[in-house]
Write a protein that binds this DNA or RNA. Structure first.
Lengths: 151, 151
DNA sequence: TTACATGTTGCAAGTGAGTTGCAACTATCA
DNA sequence: TGATAGTTGCAACTCACTTGCAACATGTAA
């Protein structure tokens, strides 16, 4: 894994810098971890990956950086139906919102985009005169594989 | 407020008894608190209301009873966008699922039912071959009043 | 290039929601 | 009425996350 300092700054980093926020070594590392994540990571997983690039980084810095990203609407915080306790998971805010499905049996998380979801949010904004800043649709149940298994 | 012992057993109590679960004095009280709640209550608010009927009830019993109701699908657990920290809120599971909208400014929680929501869940079940057990759509933003206020 | 002001970090300690182990208790049923 | 299996209350614990604060580093302006 190349050092984040020598990498082309990711989108998160560019976004934060364009807002005039200070770019520290620790932030660059944490941002690169979030940016390159292949699954949903919780704070302690982000810390573990950050430690590989700089063992000095403290978990407090991870929490503070995640809060910063949240406040700026650059990441979304997920509960994933609290399948694994009360921790939160983070993902870069996508172009288009999606639904998270969590299998209660195997724990697999699946994402799903849907026009109906977009239309539903439009309906909420119109009918309830409610300006949506963030939305979260999480569904718990049984995925295709687990549905057909004996209990 | 009449003593729950002398009340007609509520629907939650009837439901639990029909499943062969023991009906203790503490459970009757906690069920009646959840059943008669006019807003979404968290565990400590439920404990406070239960204490008015029986000051001996322990918070552990409240948590255990809420877990019991959750496992039996009789109440839903809500985050309400973590507006007030990480606590959870509880409501009796309704006939028809609804959406929770949380105003980031005034904290008001609004509920909304929608055919589009029902259709979206149908689409998920069909297109993703995912059997939905529980679903939660929470939205954070600005309600009608707060939208038109100066910031 | 340096000096500075202000924002950021790491550490230690704290908070708050929720859980667990266990002995005493009690609802249910024969 | 007594047996028994589930339930309760207490104390201690866990876990995710936050706060106070002194030392430090970044961006800026000279």
């Amino acid at each position: 894994m190349p050092l984040p300092e020598t990498e082309v700054p990711g989108r998160l980093q560019a976004e934060l810098m364009s807002r005039g926020l200070r770019m520290t070594r620790q932030r660059r590392i944490i941002l690169s971890v979030v940016e390159t994540a292949k699954q949903h990571l919780d704070a302690s997983q982000i810390l573990r990956k950050a430690h590989k690039l700089d063992p000095q980084i403290d978990r407090v810095t991870v929490y503070r950086t995640l809060n910063l990203l949240k406040r700026h609407g650059l990441v979304d915080e997920l509960d994933l139906m609290h399948l694994q306790g009360e921790k939160h998971y983070y993902e870069r805010r996508p172009q288009r919102d999606h639904i998270h499905m969590a299998c209660l049996r195997c724990g697999k998380i699946t994402e799903f985009e849907s026009d109906l979801f977009d239309r539903l949010k439009g309906q909420i904004q119109r009918d309830c005169r409610f300006h949506i800043v963030v939305s979260r649709l999480e569904v718990g149940g049984y995925c295709g594989q687990c549905r057909s298994l004996p209990s």
